[in-house]
Design a binder for these strands. Structure first.
Length: 510
RNA sequence: CGGGAUGUAGCGCAGUCCGGUAGCGCGCUUCGUUCGGGACGAAGAGGCCGCAAGUUCGAAUCUUGUCAUCCCGACCA
């Protein structure tokens, strides 16, 4: 059975791009391009030879994604969610049912128009068989709200059917005009939660709860400090009544939206006619939420923690937590050292650590040191004849690049503690960095200057989309969010001078 | 799609102005010495100079076309 299809782009952009890591995923380094090229090629994060802004996630990069996925999946399940899977293809008509949703996504959809190829009559290659045109075009999902809500109509009849707490791990396609590796690829992997509730309050609580799950994951696992907040109307999800988000600062001072959670009210229930009988025996529309994070998180991880020597991975999501590098000159030494290291590996693995024993005889120790640093392995152990004699090892931590020689007597305990310490230190470093680049601005001049300095700027805003738009046009800064954890404070809008009740965060963003 | 730039070895680039049989660094292969921070030496392998047409005795180099890529912009939960 052959099933071919062709993507026709609703809006074809000739200069659709793949983005090299060099210029986009940069840290504060002036001469960043070289190390980043090295990082990408040598760290095996992703192949740069992307087609149409898609990315190849190489094994090492994918392993990081798997750790993130597994941790998140567990958190979802701990909060009562279950996984399901819905189709990749969505009938075009589904998209026209929710007005703002179609407006938000129509411009960036890949569309399946045909289902067959045939040999070119002129003998060269194959062409799309014009006879195989689909009656109704299929959209490759850019997000699954529509097809899921169309399905939910059949699942929900009574308040007893609610809530539905479903999550889906999937890939989605968005034909963006301009892509950036990891941050905005044409196809990306993600998770999308779609829940259905009997009341407004319950749905709102769900959206807030998932925001907390995301922020906990970002901070605990990724060591990425985030600000929880609400999106302004301009930045809100197409079809949502309220969008919550977590925002993180990258090392160049730009903001990155790391995850979103949407309160969809009854918009999709109304669009797809999903009603239920409530306890009062009255027919009512269902309340909804959706929430998602994607492989963009990997971009966040890279941009937030990397240094001149390459990646810096928090131990909790590092595919390899400890790497052991043997050092020897002669064959005789080699045998002794390898045994010594193999024993160490076993001891550490008995504590469930992820250990790599780099016993390659084809590379020298110095080369291996540099290579594993590039890949961000949190702890490196080096052991040579000297260590065998002294019952010691040389320990190097990736986050601080400090080296020390320790006895192997209690090495399991020592490294267990060290990994926690590294995890905390990476988080603290990122937090300190963000705080050192977060300021308040009370005048327009001050505001412009601080935005120019790539700061997170807390400033008053009059609450109108017009003002936000004008600020964006003049400074390229957008409102990242209205922080949830901040107090109210009277003030005047930085731009219009109109009264304001609270400060919002402005920054330039990816 | 508007503005700017670039396509030469696996990667990064020089050579193009001023036409004359293809260069450098890294990487790769072999041998030797090395091995506690990306080793050194010697010898090698690897290129329809993006594609097409034109000018010319002769084109990586000049002309035209075309394709691709990158940057800025527009766009983007």
């Amino acid at each position: 059975m052959q099933f071919f299809f062709i993507f026709a782009c609703v809006k074809i952009y000739k200069y659709y791009t793949k983005i090299t890591m060099a210029k986009e995923l940069t840290s504060r380094q002036e001469n960043y391009s070289q190390w980043y090229n090295d990082l990408v090629t040598k760290a095996d994060l992703a192949e740069n030879s992307a087609v149409r802004g898609c990315m190849v996630i190489k094994p090492y990069g994918y392993a990081i994604w798997e750790f993130m996925r597994d941790a998140l999946d567990k958190m979802f399940k701990d909060t009562g969610h279950v996984n399901a899977y819905f189709p990749l293809f969505i009938p075009k008509s589904f998209f026209s049912k929710e007005a703002s949703h179609v407006e938000g996504f129509a411009k960036e959809c890949a569309v399946v128009t045909h289902y067959r190829l045939k040999n070119n009559p002129n003998g060269s290659g194959v062409v799309v068989d014009p006879d195989a045109k689909l009656e109704e075009e299929l959209i490759v999902r850019p997000t699954s709200e529509t097809i899921i809500w169309d399905t939910y109509r059949n699942w929900i009849k009574s308040y007893r059917d609610l809530p539905i707490l479903v999550n889906q791990w999937a890939n989605v396609v968005r034909w963006e005009m301009r892509t950036r590796l990891f941050l905005r690829t044409a196809e990306f992997l993600w998770q999308e939660g779609h829940t259905a509730h009997a009341t407004r309050e319950e749905a709102m609580a769900e959206a807030r709860k998932m925001l907390d799950v995301y922020s906990e994951f970002a901070e605990k696992y990724m060591a990425l400090p985030v600000i929880r907040g609400i999106k302004s109307a301009n930045e809100r999800f197409a079809g949502a009544e309220e969008t919550f988000c977590i925002e993180a600062m990258m090392q160049d001072g730009k903001a990155l939206q790391a995850g979103t959670s949407h309160f969809l009210a009854q918009n999709f229930a109304k669009a797809f006619d999903v009603k239920f009988l409530n306890k009062e025996n009255k027919l009512e529309y269902v309340w909804a939420t959706s929430w998602g994070v994607s492989t963009r998180l990997m971009g966040a991880l890279i941009m937030a923690h990397s240094d001149d020597n390459g990646l810096v991975l928090p131990p909790k999501i590092a595919p390899i937590e400890v790497v052991i590098v043997p050092i020897y000159k002669t064959d005789e030494q080699r045998q002794i050292v390898l045994d010594y290291c193999a024993n160490l590996k076993q001891r550490l693995e008995s504590r469930r650590m992820r250990v790599k024993f780099d016993d390659r005889d084809t590379q020298k120790p110095g080369f291996k040191f540099a290579e594993w640093e590039l890949k961000g392995v949190p702890v490196r152990i080096a052991a040579g004849p000297r260590d065998v004699e002294n019952n010691s090892v040389e320990l190097a931590r990736r986050d601080t690049l400090e080296k020390s020689t320790i006895s192997i007597d209690n090495i399991e305990d020592y490294i267990t503690k060290l990994l926690d310490e590294i995890q905390d230190n990476i988080f603290q470093k990122a937090l300190d960095f963000r705080q050192s680049r977060t300021v308040k601005a009370d005048t327009w001049e001050e505001f412009k200057e601080q935005i120019e300095n790539s700061m997170f700027v807390y400033a008053h805003w009059d609450g109108t989309p017009e003002t936000e738009q004008k600020i964006k046009e003049e400074t390229k800064a957008t409102i990242r969010c209205i922080p949830l954890d901040d107090d109210f404070e009277d003030g005047k809008c930085i731009y219009s001078g109109q009264p304001s009740k609270r400060r919002v965060i402005f920054a330039r963003a990816y």
